[in-house]
Amino acid sequence: MMLIARRNFVCKFTILGLLAGLAFFSAVQSAKAEYADVVINNYADAAGMRPAVFPHWFHRIRFRCKVCHADLGFKFKAGGNKITMAKIINGQFCGACHNGEIAWSVENCSMCHSGVPGLPTHFHGSTVQRLIAPTYKPLETKQ
């Protein structure tokens, strides 16, 4: 009896520790997302939508960087383009392609808005984030 009680205690303790560990790890490193995935969440959360997730690897198989970053005017800065749905349905940013002609159209909300709620805007796997002591913040790049 004693033994069982004790084991239960240990078991609970372990699960608690495990959960705490999991919460810690998923919050801090959003661990295993593909390199160069961008979470964009300037406004989405506030409007009750999941954050948007943009996969670079998927798009670079189909388009060179130049298409988005020169022709379509995406600045090299996560969250820096202030993308909104108004701009998208006017054919800017994601809307230059996600218009039912070049790629599936904008009513597929949850294809883009697929992020874990509450995640901040960030660039996954960047060298800066992976440094042991990121004591300095990335500076604004001049555009």
Partner: peptide
């Protein structure tokens, strides 16, 4: 992958790298 919400149906439609 920790950034996509598994509770979102479309997450399971996205292509695995």
């Amino acid at each position: 992958d920790g950034i996509h919400d598994p509770a979102n149906d479309s997450t399971h439609v996205l292509q695995p790298p």
